[in-house]
Amino acid sequence: MNDLTPIIYTVNDKPLSEEEQIALQGKLWQLLARQTDYYTMGCSSSVRVEMAEELYHSLLFTLQEGLKYGAFDRTQLLAAKDLELLLREGREVIEKQVEAGKRLWMQIQQNPAGINNISYDDTLKGLVEFFKRYDIRYFAHQIPGDIDYQLGHHVPDELLGIEYVNTYLRRLLIENSFIRCFETDKVVRLLQSSCPDYCGQLINLYEPVAINAIGLALLNENIYALNITAEMKESLVSSLQGCDKDCLSRLLAQSAEKVSSLLKAGAPAADYLNQTAAELLPRIELLLPTGHLDGVFLTFSV
């Protein structure tokens, strides 16, 4: 992989020519040399290769964010004799993202899932650590904090630093808002059916709720009940067994839309639920021939 890949990726409308890459690489070295000098406070002309790599990735990430959010454009990047100014502009973009991240964290505090889960609580504490320890200047691409709680839809590993964290927070906020649409008692009963130790295990709280809501919408039942009885599952199996892949996909998408409409979900939340429904398709396809959908839809056990 070429070192300039992250930047090219952002300006992929027109890939950099070889000359442009060489010119940019030279400027990146100069920037790295200066950054290393700042980092060691001028006390050391050399650093470990691992440290240089971290500093370099941070520079690339900062410039990438600047490009992505329009602080400067490709022409300015290539024309700049010194990237220091552009780096500063990239940092300003990241600073704004950090502020946005803090606001998202506050929103999550104000809209908690309302269900006890150790990994969820630890992750919120880990995110506080992130905002305290996040180093925009030297390690902007790093995520200094423990994020253990599993989301229904994982944040892509390609995302780095504050971008990863903000995407995580946005998704967590969507999941929390979704869970809060249902009675806590019913959510707890549903979670107990899927995992008796739902408080202590590293599980996602949103997914079982979303899947059962979609299942109930498929059956034209009350989605707020959250319980899919054995009879309902039989009915689901018999109604879905004749469907091909396209038909199943359409039905799941319609159910997700129905749930979103009933919950008055905004566009990001509706997209998120659609994604959950889409991911159900291979699981249902696999289980339909067995005549059971127990592994997908849940029945209250208590």
Partner: peptide
């Protein structure tokens, strides 16, 4: 020496000093 010690050096380096 830099390679063997896993280090990278910028600028003038240590040699002239």
């Amino acid at each position: 020496a830099l390679r063997d010690t896993g280090r990278i050096e910028f600028g003038q380096g240590i040699l002239t000093r």
